[in-house]
Design a binder for these strands. Structure first.
Length: 237
DNA sequence: GCCAACGTTGGC
DNA sequence: GCCAACGTTGGC
């Protein structure tokens, strides 16, 4: 499976307020349209088409529109309830079409960011909770948010007994491997740059990786995204 | 609605 | 393995 993310928590996080807002829309799952290829065979795809959230939705104060993302997952084996949650970028490459569903996110803020994702946008694949944390590669969002079927699966690590089929709490997106970075960009290097930029100004000044460290799905501004990509051609700091 | 206790994330 | 930071829960 795809235990991708550490969602456990993380992913799911809501930060405070945000989530609440989001939560508000909780019901809005997006539409599950057809199933894409979920990776796991199971995909339950609910077929209902959601019409949308509209209803109540007042979309809160609008959330800024981001179009680049960073998603965390653990590349090294670790048992959670007896189940290995390992899912690194190499695992994504192995799936059919190099595509998988990013299930298991159980944090409202992270979930909301996934709900904001649009097909065709890019996300960094970040390796967390491992020897060398950092950004390994780039993926593309190939299916916008739909119901995360693992919330209803008692056997799944991320089963959520509080989520009901008629009002699912958790969503996921499908992502496709795009490419490895020309070199792995370690967290340690990003951190040094972040600290410099905080002092003198610079693109990584407010990077979510440092300002909201525990969030497993986070947005990047275009400037941040491009800056990180520019590091590929530099020598490691 | 506050807030203390508890649980999780994830770097180190 | 430790533990700081922070989200979540539940009593009141």
């Amino acid at each position: 499976m795809a235990p991708k993310m550490r969602t456990r928590g993380t992913t799911r996080t809501l930060q405070s307020s945000n989530d609440e807002e989001t939560k508000t829309n909780a019901h809005s799952e997006d539409s599950p349209l057809e199933v894409g290829q979920a990776v796991r065979g199971k995909r339950k795809g609910s077929g209902k088409t959601g019409k949308q959230e509209s209803s109540k939705a007042k979309k809160s104060p609008e959330r800024p529109q981001y179009c680049h993302w960073l998603m965390k997952s653990e590349p090294e084996s670790r048992l959670e309830n007896g189940i290995d949650v390992k899912f690194g970028i190499e695992d994504l490459k192995t799936l059919p079409n190099q595509t998988g569903c990013w299930d298991g996110v159980r944090n409202y803020q992270a979930r909301n960011f996934m709900r904001d994702m649009k097909e065709g946008q890019h996300a960094f694949f970040y390796h967390s909770n491992c020897k060398e944390p950092g950004i390994a590669g780039v993926m593309k969002i190939v299916k916008e948010s739909y119901v995360d079927h693992t919330q209803f699966d008692k056997k799944d690590v991320h089963y959520d007994a509080s989520s009901k089929a008629d009002n699912p709490k958790w969503s996921m997106v499908d992502v496709q491997f795009e490419r490895m970075l020309k070199r792995f960009i370690p967290l340690s290097e990003l951190k040094k740059i972040h600290l410099q930029h905080k002092v003198k100004g610079g693109s990584l000044n407010g990077m979510a990786l440092f300002t909201r460290a525990r969030l497993s799905v986070q947005p990047l501004t275009s400037e941040e995204f491009e800056f990180v990509l520019s590091l590929e051609d530099n020598d490691p700091l």
